[in-house]
């Protein structure tokens, strides 16, 4: 469970860090944040995702990492729902890329369903964070 979610976050984070302009544009395309916040979010989010992945892999602070992961997913789902409602045609930029696409190529429902699936994984981890082979277990040493 932990490792599955970690792979998702690592993949999402890595796909975004290669090109800063693309990362910024993926955020800008949602037309939610003012220009001054586009870069901090576009640049910071991929690394936050990688950090969550790392914490989940080693099993340190699993409950906190799961909480952050849940907050991120809720924000992403809200963002996708918002562009959908406003009729803007973009790629969610979830795993890199992002930006405008032809209206026929939007995949909002799939994107939201996928994120909801990840949210269920996250909820499970919040409920049952403890697992074997985790630093949490090893540090508590009981």
């Amino acid at each position: 469970m932990r490792l599955g979610l970690a792979v998702v976050w690592a993949w999402a984070g890595l796909a975004k860090i290669s090109d800063p302009e693309t990362a910024a544009q993926a955020v800008r395309a949602y037309r939610i944040l003012p220009e001054s916040l586009v870069k901090p979010f576009g640049y910071g989010l991929p690394f936050l995702e990688l950090a969550v992945a790392l914490l989940l892999v080693v099993g340190l602070g699993t409950r906190i990492a799961a909480f952050v992961s849940g907050v991120l997913l809720l924000v992403y789902i809200a963002g996708i729902a918002s562009v959908w409602a406003r009729g803007i045609a973009i790629d969610c930029g979830c795993f890199g890329g992002g930006g405008a696409v032809a209206a026929s190529k939007t995949e909002y429902l799939q994107e939201i369903l996928r994120d909801t699936g990840f949210l269920l994984l996250t909820a499970w981890l919040l409920w049952r964070p403890a697992s074997k082979l985790s630093l949490d277990r090893w540090l508590a040493a009981d």
Partner: peptide, 11 residues
């Protein structure tokens, strides 16, 4: 730290 490093690296 990850977020701060990330913003610096991307910048």
């Amino acid at each position: 730290v990850a977020v701060v490093v990330g913003i610096l690296v991307m910048n």
